[in-house]
Design a protein around this nucleic acid. Structure first.
Lengths: 135, 135
DNA sequence: ATCCCTGCAAAGCCTTTGCATGCGC
DNA sequence: GCGCATGCAAAGGCTTTGCAGGGAT
């Protein structure tokens, strides 16, 4: 329930909808539509727009991280664990977490530890280029 | 012009539009709309749908790679170089290439070599999970 | 009571699809 | 001439935005 403090401290309100979103994210990285369906099944009245707006707020506060897995939409997950990456099965779409470690050796270790056979990977660095640091 | 052979060998045709797409991609990773604008300026008559269809074909043939840089759209680049990754400046949006190497040491080397200050990175592995390999 | 948050509706992008015409082979 | 590729138009999926009412503080 630490997220309650983070929200309040920054002047945001705790609502039924926001609590349910964070609850639903507790187990697995979800897309917006998956979140929507889960909340509907729990009879939580919510709109897609509210989910988008809440997730944007959560991400800005560092409560949630979004990742783009090339599905044409983002997935969101709770940031309760340390920085890590994902193994996405191209057959079943399942997602597993892995630690952030060396790449080349990582791929070998991944297979050894999880039997997940890596076929391709993407790695993107975001930051400030040399010129932009001087502005 | 090796792409001509690849296309022909697989039963695809060389058209003005396809040549121009591949030409335009030669220098920099482009989004579909950037491609569209460039071709329009060169007075090449082409439709967005044709660009999407061509890029899908090129990607399937391994001529082109797409990457999702969290912009809500894909970028496409020519696969004439070896496997590499990107440095995306969060200020100017500029994209630089880097070799595929260790991550932790990579970030230090990146700064040393390019003065690019990495703030965050995403790493995604795609492949077959243990269960799906047995189907 | 204030002001944020929500639902509803509409619209904005990016992308895909159907269909008839056109062009490479 | 055959059949893929194209342009045009329409539609689909994901996401954003405007606005008035409702709820958290």
């Amino acid at each position: 329930m630490e997220y309650v403090e983070t929200l309040k401290k920054n002047g945001y309100r705790i609502t039924k909808q926001r609590s349910e979103i964070l609850n639903a994210l507790a187990t697995y990285p979800l897309s917006v539509h998956e979140l929507f369906k889960i909340l509907q099944q729990k009879s939580v009245k919510i709109d897609l727009a509210s989910i988008y707006r809440s997730l944007e707020t959560f991400e800005r506060l560092g409560l949630v991280a979004s990742s783009d897995l090339g599905e044409g939409k983002k997935r969101y997950e709770l940031l309760h664990t340390k920085h890590h990456h994902h193994l996405i099965c191209t057959s079943c779409g399942g997602i597993e977490d892995i630690d952030c470690a060396d790449i080349e050796t990582a791929i070998q270790k991944i297979y050894k530890n999880t039997q997940f056979k890596v076929e391709r990977h993407t790695l993107e660095f975001f930051g400030q280029c040399h010129l932009c640091q001087q502005l």
